[in-house]
Design a protein around this nucleic acid. Structure first.
Lengths: 207, 207
DNA sequence: GAAAAAATACCTGAAACCCGGGATGCCCGA
DNA sequence: TCGGGCATCCCGGGTTTCAGGTATTTTTTC
């Protein structure tokens, strides 16, 4: 019997997956959670074999969460469910050591398959994900840069349309410092101006 | 018997809703579609009483689609399912004359309720939506500005990090013209620089 | 406790952007 | 048909950002 947890904040999706898993008698659903916090708490008490994890959660970035869980529970198989078909997101999540990546527009069978594959110790990616992952000539970054707390803060304010001077005033730091942070961000994202960053940051929900 | 169509590109969500509706014997599911095109084609052949419409579709902007369907089928009740909890999106969709707006993190019961309410001729909004809609002090625009084809094109290129000069060259127009479009965009979004626009444009999937 | 990472600050010149105008031609819908 | 929306082009001046550094202090992490 394969014990499975679901973490997804949409009741309808939960319902859909529940139903799907109910058709298989080698799989038992032992927990359903709406956010990262509840999931982490549940894992402390009881560890399932597989976690189906939506990476768009209300409280924590799923990318960050998947890393935390991976580090804390090396035996647990994590299958990420996601709407993100951008290479950068897929790469980042896979680099965190998850065991599967399934796009939400996949058919239910792919989830069942994924569960069996990861239990067998394999890495599972749905067909579409595989295509994107192997495709060289995608636009956009190949990975999501790791940004610091302060950089994130500055990026947020830039995104709201504030100038460096305004940001400096708001954060009680020198405009020069703000400039430095901007430069570092541009370097990390490998672009020449902030506009290009904002698109990715918004798309990838970094803010 | 209330005839219902579902349009959503996620099989798992379809499954969840199917299940939900199956528990009610006054509701019959008469069609399930994955995109705007299929939905429009199906409507030509047979019109249901209610359409449950996800506004994040692979082919058409759901906001645009809802308007089209409203105009072509005035009798059809449209309930929009969405992950967007931004006031601007809610307002825009409602202004297109849809009959209901339900966030995807709502519980299943709200969908059932919504169906009955709209059949009764009422406008239905889920609890959360109502809160957002009535809240005055939200950040961001109160509506999604209507932008022209050319403006959209310029916005896209700006978002990719191109300068006005580069855009001008690419589109074979004067840099002055590009500047004018930028100015018009900033006016429409009521902001002082392009960075603030990019966030909304990406968030609202205008590009 | 030391090393690495993050945050801070400074300078300068060039490039790009923003602001406040004015102006023309085209085309589509009322 | 004619008016409004759209796209186009132009100018000058002020502001902001970008690119190229260097360098110190604070915080985190191992």
């Amino acid at each position: 019997m394969i014990k499975v947890y679901i973490t997804d904040d949409h009741p309808i999706v939960q319902e859909g997956i529940k139903n799907l898993l109910a058709t298989r008698d080698e799989i038992s659903l032992t927990g359903v959670y709406q956010n990262g916090k509840d999931t982490l708490e549940a894992l402390v008490k009881e560890e399932p074999d597989v976690l189906l994890l939506d990476i768009n959660l209300p409280d924590i970035s799923g990318i960050e969460l998947s890393k935390q869980i991976r580090d804390a529970y090396p035996e647990l198989k994590i299958i990420v469910l996601s709407v993100h078909n951008e290479k950068a997101v897929i790469s980042s999540v896979l680099q965190n050591g998850v065991n599967g990546y399934v796009l939400k527009n996949s058919i239910g069978d792919e989830i069942i398959q994924a569960i069996h594959k990861v239990i067998d110790g394999e890495l599972y990616m749905c067909v579409q994900t595989r295509d994107i992952y192997n495709n060289q000539d995608t636009t956009g970054p190949d990975f999501i840069p790791k940004i610091t707390r302060r950089e994130k803060e500055i990026l947020q304010l830039v995104t709201e349309g504030m100038t460096s001077a305004q940001i400096a005033e708001k954060l009680f730091i020198s405009p020069y410092t703000v400039e430095t942070h901007r430069k570092n961000l541009m370097e990390k994202f490998d672009v020449n101006n902030m506009t290009a960053i904002i698109k990715y940051a918004t798309e990838f929900k970094l803010l």
